[in-house]
């Protein structure tokens, strides 16, 4: 994921009006991100996936073909979603004064490069046993109870 985060940082250096950048899967889970401190990664991911789903549905309704980008502009910021693959998208929050031409060129280029990295990762990663990640001790996760995590 460091490679992807580096690409996101490069993109922000090229287009400094980008305030937040995240690679999100269609489940709404953030795979990699460079976000401003006041943005919740989880919320940003969930909303991005929702927007993507809605865009897909609208396009399907008007027989508009496959979705590639979604652009939502407010008077202060705009949101740009660029599809990386069928399961992932690049989601950006950008100041409204960003030069749109340069932005689109750089975003499409970055999305393509991230797509190549993710595709390579999918080939190399196959199956992981969670118990291996936990050092063989699954009791720490199996004993999880939310009743122990309530506010006193």
């Amino acid at each position: 994921m460091e490679k992807i985060e580096e690409l996101l940082n490069q993109l922000i250096r090229k287009v400094p009006q980008i305030r937040a950048a995240a690679v999100v899967n269609t489940e709404g889970i953030v795979i990699a991100s460079v976000l401003e401190g006041n943005i919740s990664e989880e919320n940003f991911g969930a909303m991005s996936a929702a927007l993507l789903g809605l865009g897909d549905s609208v396009l399907s309704e008007v027989k508009g073909g496959k979705l590639s980008e979604i652009y939502v502009k407010g008077n202060e910021k705009m949101i740009l979603l660029s599809k990386i693959s069928k399961d992932q998208l690049l989601s950006l929050s950008i100041s409204s004064d960003a030069p749109l031409g340069l932005l689109l060129v750089e975003v499409r280029k970055t999305a393509k490069m991230i797509g190549a990295i993710l595709s390579e990762m999918e080939k190399t990663q196959t199956v992981t046993d969670i118990s291996e990640l936990l050092g063989g001790d699954t009791s720490i996760i199996e004993g999880l109870s939310f009743k122990d995590l309530l506010e006193e």
């Binding site: 489940e27 709404g28 889970i29 919740s40 989880e42 919320n43 991911g45 969930a46 929702a50 809605l54 990640l133 936990l134 050092g135 720490i140 996760i141 999880l144 995590l149």
Partner: peptide, 23 residues
Amino acid sequence: LYFDFLPIEITLAGGFKVKFHVY
């Protein structure tokens, strides 16, 4: 209208994080 969403994050012993995305 569309969904409700609540993220929950728990750090286990050994620094292992489990993030629940509840919809």
